[in-house]
Design a protein around this nucleic acid. Structure first.
Lengths: 242, 242
DNA sequence: CGACGCTTTGACACAACTCAACAACCGTGG
DNA sequence: CCACGGTTGTTGAGTTGTGTCAAAGCGTCG
C-alpha cells in the first residue's frame, strides 16, 4: 500500500502541488495491496462494480470487447498506472482489466473516492487530470494503429513501450522484459497473431529489434524510431497551483 | 456567449450539481462567440496557444497529423461540444481543430481557466470529468475502426453520428444533413477516399442508407445497426454531489 | 514421457490501396 | 446566360498487404 500510494502521488505531483492533507486523503483512498494470478480478470466491461486499480508490479492489460467476440487491447499499464478510475466514476466499466502475469495491485474503493469530490475537490481535479493525460496516450496509440502498416505499428508499439518502461526504470538503454505472447500482441496491434510473427521476423532480419523468449532487445533505436514515425508527445505538466 | 455557456453548463449538470457561484464562474470562462470560415484551422497540433473552443453551429473536426503527412480525424464535434479543453490544460495541443463549414464558436481562454483550479476546484473536477467522458467516446470510435471492415466502419460511423445528432435535435428519425466530402470521411474512417465511395455505393445498393449531396437518408436503421455491430455505450452520469 | 501452449512457416484468398481516367456539380466571371 | 476551372464523385484494372487455413517445430510443465 505504501508503494502504490507513492506511485500515484508522484504521478499527481507532476500536475499539481499537493498539500499534506491532500496527500493524506490520497493515501486513505487505497486499501492494502492484493496479489492476483495470471489470467485473472479484475474488471469486466459493462460491469458496475465500483472499483479501480493501481498496478504495482506484473503485467496487465485493459481491453474492449469487440462485436465479433474478439478483443482490442487498449493499453498495457506500467507499474504505477491507475486503471479504471474513470470507469469507476462513470459507474459502468467501459473496458475490461486483466492480469497477464501474476501481479500485485492496489484497490481504490469507489465509496471512498466519491467523497473526495466534496472533501478535497482539488485532489479530485488532480486525479482527473492524470486520467486525462493517460487517455491522451491511449488515443495516441489507437490513432497510431489505424493508419500505420503492420510493421510501422509494431515498431511504434515497441518503441513507445520501451520509452514508458524506461521512465519507471524497468528497461535499460538496449533491452527490457516483455512477457507478452504474440497472440496478446496481436490483440493490441489489431493484427492476426500469425502476421505479428511475420512482422517480428522482419524487424529481426532488418536488425532493428529482437523479441526472443520474454526479452526485447533494441538493436537500432534510431532506425526503429524512424520506422515507427514516432513523434515525441510534447505534453507538458504542471498546470495547477503556482 | 449565452448559448455556448448553456450548452456547456447543461453538459456539466449531467455529472454534477453546480452552485450558482459555480455557474457564474463557468459563464465567466467564455468570451463572446466568433464566426469562423470554412477551412479555418483554429488550433494546430503541437501549438501552445492556450485556447479551447465550444462549437456553437456548423461542422468541424479535430484531427491528428500523421507521420506521412496525412491526418486522422478523431471526432466531429456536434454543436455544444467542447474541443481542446485538455489540450489547453496540458499546455500543448495534442490535436488540431478545423472548421469544415462556416461555423460559430465560443472561445475559452486558458488564463481564466487556470484560476478555476484554485478558485473553484469542484467546477474544475466537473469539467475534467466531462472531458474524460468525451474521451471515452473517442476511444470507442477508434477501437471501432481498428477491427472492423470498411463497410462495418462506415455503417458504425454513420449510425453513431445519426444518434449523436438526434440527441441535439439535428437529425430526424430518417435523415440528417452531413456536409462531409468523401475525402473528409476517408480521413475519419481510415480509408482511401476511393474506397469510401465504393462502400457508400454498397450501402446504397443494399438499401441501408444513402448519402446524396449533403443529405444522409437512413433506409433501414435496424439492418444498419446490425452491420455496424453497434453496442449502446452503457455509460452513466451523475457521480458527484448527492 | 506426453500434453499443451506458443512460435514459425507455407500456400492461398480477399480486402483495400493505387493509379488513371472520366463524369457530375458548383461558383465565378465574361 | 453560358463557359470555365476547380472540387467532388464515380468507375475500372492491377497490385499489395493482411487474414485464413493447415501443419510442423519447440519449450515447458506436470
Amino acid at each position: 500500500m505504501p508503494h502504490g500510494s507513492s506511485f500515484l502521488a508522484n504521478k499527481l505531483r507532476k500536475f499539481v502541488r499537493l498539500s499534506d492533507r491532500e496527500l493524506e486523503c490520497l493515501a486513505q483512498l487505497q486499501s492494502s495491496t492484493v496479489d492476483v494470478k495470471r489470467g485473472k480478470e479484475l474488471v469486466r466491461e459493462g460491469q458496475t462494480g465500483h472499483v479501480a486499480y493501481i498496478l504495482h508490479s506484473g503485467w496487465a492489460c485493459s481491453s474492449k470487447i469487440l462485436p465479433d467476440g474478439g478483443r482490442q487491447i487498449i493499453t498495457f499499464p506500467v507499474p504505477g498506472d491507475c486503471v479504471g478510475l474513470r470507469s469507476m466514476l462513470l459507474r459502468t466499466a467501459d473496458h475490461s482489466f486483466s492480469a497477464l502475469t501474476d501481479a500485485v495491485v492496489s484497490r481504490v474503493e469507489a465509496p471512498r473516492f466519491a467523497g473526495v469530490f466534496d472533501d478535497s475537490p482539488r485532489l479530485a481535479a488532480a486525479i482527473l487530470l492524470a486520467i486525462s493525460w493517460d487517455e491522451a496516450l491511449v488515443v495516441e496509440h489507437l490513432v497510431g494503429i489505424v493508419r500505420r502498416s503492420a510493421i510501422e505499428r509494431t515498431a511504434h508499439f515497441f518503441f513507445t513501450l520501451w520509452h514508458r518502461l524506461r521512465l519507471v526504470g524497468l528497461a535499460t538503454e538496449t533491452e527490457f522484459t516483455c512477457p507478452l505472447s504474440q497472440y496478446v500482441l496481436a490483440d493490441a496491434l489489431g493484427l492476426s497473431a500469425i502476421h505479428v510473427n511475420r512482422v517480428l521476423r522482419h524487424l529481426r532480419e532488418q536488425g532493428l529489434m529482437t523479441l526472443k523468449g520474454k526479452l526485447v532487445v533494441i538493436h537500432d533505436a534510431s532506425r526503429l524510431k524512424e520506422l515507427a514515425g514516432h513523434q515525441n508527445s510534447p505534453i507538458n505538466h504542471r498546470v495547477m497551483g503556482a
